[in-house]
Nucleic acid binder design. Sequence first.
DNA 1: GCCATCTTGGCAGTCACTGCCAACTTGGCG
DNA 2: CGCCAAGTTGGCAGTGACTGCCAAGATGGC
Lengths: 190, 190
Amino acid sequence: MGIRERNRRAVEQEISEAAMRLFVAQGFDATTTDEIAHAAGVSPRSLFRYVGTKEDIVLGDLRDAGQRVLAALQARPPEEGPWEALRAALAVLEDNPPDRALAITEMFLRTPSLRARRLEKRLAWLDLLVPEVTRRLGRAPGDVPDPAAHAIVSAALACLDTATEVWARRGGTGDVVQIFDEALAAVRRA
Amino acid sequence: MGIRERNRRAVEQEISEAAMRLFVAQGFDATTTDEIAHAAGVSPRSLFRYVGTKEDIVLGDLRDAGQRVLAALQARPPEEGPWEALRAALAVLEDNPPDRALAITEMFLRTPSLRARRLEKRLAWLDLLVPEVTRRLGRAPGDVPDPAAHAIVSAALACLDTATEVWARRGGTGDVVQIFDEALAAVRRA
DNA sequence: GCCATCTTGGCAGTCACTGCCAACTTGGCG
DNA sequence: CGCCAAGTTGGCAGTGACTGCCAAGATGGC
């Protein structure tokens, strides 16, 4: 990794931290990109050479997270059922609850534009995960997604959302994975 | 209904139709709000007295739709299980496939900002429907949503999304409700 | 017919973002 | 070491979705 790449990472880090500080302090909508740029020590113009959108500053790692989930899913034993595999794959996300996880999740729930973008990034996971689940169901992959596989992945993600929201609304007490399991159980039993 | 209200409805109608014509013709992002205003015969400033956001022109009736679903859900017999009740309630949405349903759905799928907003409006349905399902599950309503009820409603909505997307990706052939049932069956069986 | 009450349209402003360009760094190469 | 190609930066101007404000016009009840 050259010095250039190293510098890029450092600036990205700086932007992310400065932005998060401002977001938590004054709220997402009340923080302008100019403020963030200034606080991070770059010009407003350069800020957008590092981040695609204001929302991406918060949601940036969600794309990587999708890849992590896919990798975890592919690593599950092939004979495992789709639900068990998805449950295990999605649980890897909740391994790393940073200090500010609650504050950030609450910001997600409170800020409509963030909620929307977050959902949209989640949607991209579908395209990632559906092929693998289609394979596990023993169905043929195709141009149009398999309805069963698509539904199962969507429902599993919905359960994860449920778990995250309930966890945050409970003030961050309790275990996300446990609520996730509860949600999965409710869907599969009811 | 006074003449004022009547006029308001007429202008709303005009805006909606003009906008849809432009959206279908040139795409959502390529159409400016000034164009829409001009085509609808109002000033750019007044356009935003009728619609909240550009996306709302397309998604405007989604809020009412949520209320329709809730009403349909409440009308289901109380002894019916949550899944059956939700299935029936959500099916009312697909009764009215307008001519341009396919074009509009494809526009949804193609336009990120629309997808995001649509998902967000869907999210609002959750708050609407969860209390009713909580009641059906025989659980106590509370400040924090019941995880089971929340998960079931989320999953049912996810199935509806699956059905809509698969239907559109198949070129609008086939029956949305049938795909919806297929999705529900996959989730509950797998 | 008149006045209080909308409603409208234009103007100016904000904010997220983008293309363009000129100045500046940088890293490799002779 | 010095120079050149290539990447990076910051400012400027512009676009597009909105918003507050205000003055002018339409409206509807009395």
